[in-house]
Write a protein that binds this DNA or RNA. Structure first.
Lengths: 205, 205, 205, 205
DNA sequence: AATGAATGAGCATTCATTCAT
DNA sequence: TATGAATGAATGCTCATTCAT
């Protein structure tokens, strides 16, 4: 494929590529030094472009973080819905969600750091993100649980909202610990560990 | 000779009082605007002292956050240990931990905000805090679980480390959701909701 | 071969047209936001061309202002000389000058704003402009006054240089006030008001 | 006089002195390079203080210019009113105004440059300043002229507003020319030159 | 000639920290 | 101990200008 802009399609790709490059660079920089400690100049240098160029693709430093989150969340939810559509049974669906959650973040440490750490650094961010993607994500889990109760697979004396938060919280903690851990271990297998407790409970029967 | 330096005892009291005042002011300010958006001058004004005075009690803005965390965590763990000492049985101990966790944070929204949000705003902070108090806290939970397994109360096919993280993550998520929620509800009762799942599992028996 | 370069004649016309368009756009933009607050991009957009195209016709933003001034002043002086050539008598000549001054600026508010405001925004500009057109303009007034003194129409105890400045200053102030005024009134008639005073003081009794 | 801050009075003086120093430095810098080309750092260096200190006394670069103008105009009008109070007769009053106008600006070239050049560099500034000091100044001249008409000293067929603008415009032009002139000559004497013409045209015959 | 994406120097302002009093 | 004026390094963003196409 030539580097020329012979077609509109290609030109578009190039623009998208640069936006993408900036986003990728930003994640790397944010993950390394934290959002507030990262300079726009750092991102530009990491992306191999001039400082000003960043502002041709993003309105502000803030917008970079938002864009990153929006896109990542959108991708994640789209992928999740697609995979869930092919699965029967609430239990198996939850398993898929948990696995996907940890697979995705476990596959990209920098992305995970930004998700787990940077996006939580301010109530403002959290509020906005919570209202956006996080909320939708929790909803999917909640509905799957409610479905499972209707299907008679899950206990009916539990509130789906609470149960959803429990599962999400547990998974989230796995990711955070994985990021902070000095040791290097695969994150994805933790899904089954969580589910073993989640599905079966802790008490001896 | 000034009143405050007449005796060591008195001086200490005064110092502690002012240190305390600054710390309290800092939590309020951090909770309201976030660590990075809070100015040392804001804290000073909130505490009713001059800007420079802050530096007689703390080496830097950063140290204020650290001190706050250290003290809060220390208090919390001390209180926890004390209460656990009076309890027999791993299950009841875990229940107490969960309740204490949510009671404490639920009783002081500003403190909770700083804990849930501000302390997570940078990998640097998280790493440091994880190595300090969080680690010890998780350890206590882990050991209680291990004890429960020995006592034959808990399933033995589960790794205590993982189970501890699951419980902690679930509780943590309850707090975060409570903070971000527009609605006002008591946090403490969520402990039992979490434990119902944690102890019993989700599946229909 | 492009249309515009087929013949020199045509090309020139096109070039002149676009140069003109840029100049016109610049006046509009400068008048609205001030020279320093106007972006080259604003001018380009107003002119309906790309940013870079501006630089095919002008070496810099600064040069646009200069070009504008040079051309406007040139036009104005040429027109003035032409009209003066048809008039006998120093008094009538001065009247014509004053009228032309206010008619011209009164007919184009944007041009007037740039003349009265933007061109005075820096000593550098003023120095340059003074050395160029302003100087020539004042000279014409001065000479007309000197002629009037020789003709015995004007008092001979006044220095033409000073008298010229007085007339110019008075007219200039009329324009400035007209621009800043919230009320909308015709500028040209002010010429006679000024002359009523001016001649009263200058004429030989 | 000691450099200490033993008394409140002295302390006040010091503060006022620094504000004054910044203002003085700003005038010098603005006069030399123009408002838009002057950096706040230039002003700070000229005043012998740190950049940030400027902001302890002024909210913004813009505010420095405003403060300067407000104070200068206030001073000037106060002085003018004081002197006018001691004078009988509209004609002599106008003479005093004209003289004061040129004496003041003629005594401080830098201040004059800022007044004549920088304050006119934008419609925004001019509008604001016109509404403030300039307006009051013109009013004083206008009223003096109206008084003169009532007293039978000045022709009654002239509109005071217009006549006031003429005088102001003529004086203003003297100042501008003086600033731009390469030659160095005293400004104050020009007042009488202007008045010779002005009164010739305005006085009742 | 025309485009408009890319450049990068430039700058007002903020704020943690210091220090003379 | 306490003050708060002073410091000056640090940085997000703008915009005149260039240049590959």
């Amino acid at each position: 494929m030539s580097r020329s802009t012979r077609t509109n399609g290609e030109a578009r790709v190039f623009v998208a590529d640069k936006r993408e490059a900036i986003l990728r660079a930003a994640i790397k920089v944010f993950a390394g030094k934290g959002y507030f400690n990262s300079k726009v100049a750092d991102i530009a240098k990491e992306a191999g472009i001039a400082d000003g160029t960043v502002y041709l693709y993003f309105k502000s430093k803030d917008e970079i973080l938002h864009s990153f989150f929006d896109r990542a969340m959108e991708d994640f939810i789209a992928e999740g819905k697609k995979q869930l559509a092919e699965i029967e049974g609430a239990q198996e669906k939850l398993r898929r969600i948990a696995q996907l959650h940890l697979e995705r973040l476990g596959a990209d440490r920098e992305l995970a750091i930004v998700f787990q750490v940077e996006l939580r650094g301010s109530t403002k961010f959290m509020q906005e993100f919570s209202a956006a993607g996080f909320g939708e994500y929790l909803d999917i889990i909640r509905e799957t649980i409610a479905d499972g109760q209707k299907q008679g697979v899950f206990r009916k004396d539990l509130k789906p909202v609470v149960v959803a938060k429990i599962l999400y919280g547990a998974l989230d903690e796995m990711v955070t610990n994985w990021i902070l851990s000095q040791k290097s271990y695969p994150l994805a297998p933790m899904a089954d560990e969580v589910l073993k407790v989640f599905f079966g409970g802790v008490l001896q029967k």
